[in-house]
Amino acid sequence: MSLPVSRVALVAVTALAFVTNVGARAQDSAGGSSSVKVADEGRQVYEQICQACHMADAKGGAGAGANIPALANNPKLADKDYPLTLLLRGRGGMPWFTDMLSPEQMAAVATYVRSHFNNYPDPVSVEDVKRVGAARPGPVPDCTTCN
């Protein structure tokens, strides 16, 4: 059961003063508005969002022009703040997901990745997301030719 987008947005805005979905739009885009919803359950969030880059087996991609980091068996995930920092701020080629995922969805997918592809069973909570997010403000998209 997924929340309506407006509800997700409301939760995100009230929780962490997240930006609107404008940042998810590219410099050239289809035009119009999207109703694509992301599921709430951790595994589904992983499949709908994360595996685009980190791949279905969470082993990432190697041997290319550059690597996509593996999430499976990744000791950095022992610290639950690590995936949350990346989801909230982005790093390197990976963008932030504050305009695509609610704090609930971030907590769910972080819990899933840490427990399913690694051996860190303690759940990540929405409070964890808020705590990490409160440390720094969310990104504000800059684009003079966005549409």
């Binding site: 739009r25 999207s34 694509v36 919803k37 709908q48």
Partner: peptide, 8 residues
């Protein structure tokens, strides 16, 4: 596709 739709 852009955004979440592109990732899906």
């Amino acid at each position: 596709a852009n955004g979440a739709g592109a990732l899906q």
